[in-house]
Design a binder for these strands. Structure first.
Lengths: 122, 122
DNA sequence: TCAATATATGAACACATATTCATATGTTCA
DNA sequence: TGAACATATGAATATGTGTTCATATATTGA
């Protein structure tokens, strides 16, 4: 490793810190892990879903309740709930015709809280 | 408040839990706050930026180093660094021609870590 | 079984966004 | 001052994504 300077792909620079590049490359988690991580944050990266998460943070709710709180139509909410469900952030239980959604994981709250702290801290 | 059922806008349902809806609505942070929060998470919601954040988590690096680690061209990295900078997650210092980037905030690491825990936990 | 209701889903559309290419800016050194 | 280099930026393009509309599914009660 580190035999030829141009051995490091796709960089046209003449001077790089080879040791740093090498070490960081070594310590990087698997591509797939980082991709999944980005996917997780992507779910938080929409204000409709953030509102839903916040709402569920307060209380278990049915689809209709959520739509009422956010002032949006049922279809939009249902689509977003599917995404939250698929990513393992929300779960539901059925009671007759009504589906009650709630948060599925404590990490959700922690991530949310950290984000909130960041927003408020500066 | 809560006088007429149809007083709650934009929901076509006939039966809703008015108390729940009311309480959650009351406790919701300002629209703008939740929007900012979503914007923050959106920055984490891209695998290129996640990789950059991880790399900077390990070590301060110049643009060229980062490009080398990720195997991407300089322009793409530069564009993403601008986003990280604008959202207050990364900062830089100049040394001659070279710009050294690093993480700007400890919250970044906490948010990142929580996300990682979630990914790995199930 | 049929109507009413709560929710889910597929397609379409409008909009956002990541990457690339070409070019500009800013710094060093001769 | 001018060449060489590191980085930044604008425009163009391709791809992704949220919402809406129309329609489907599933449950209840008559």
């Amino acid at each position: 490793m580190g035999d030829k300077k141009q051995g490091i792909e796709t960089c046209s620079c003449t001077i790089i810190h080879e040791d740093v590049v090498h070490n960081v490359k070594e310590s990087m988690p698997r591509e797939e892990k980082l991709y999944d991580l980005a996917e997780l944050f992507k779910v938080f990266g929409d204000s409709t879903r953030i509102k839903i998460i916040y709402a569920l943070f307060e209380s278990e709710m049915c689809v209709c309740d959520i739509a009422a709180v956010l002032g949006m139509n049922l279809s939009a909410i249902s689509h977003q709930l599917r995404i939250l469900k698929q990513s393992g952030l929300a779960k539901f239980r059925r009671e007759g015709k009504i589906m009650y959604y709630s948060l599925d994981d404590e990490h959700v709250m922690n991530i949310f809280q950290q984000g909130f702290d960041h927003i408020n801290h500066k």
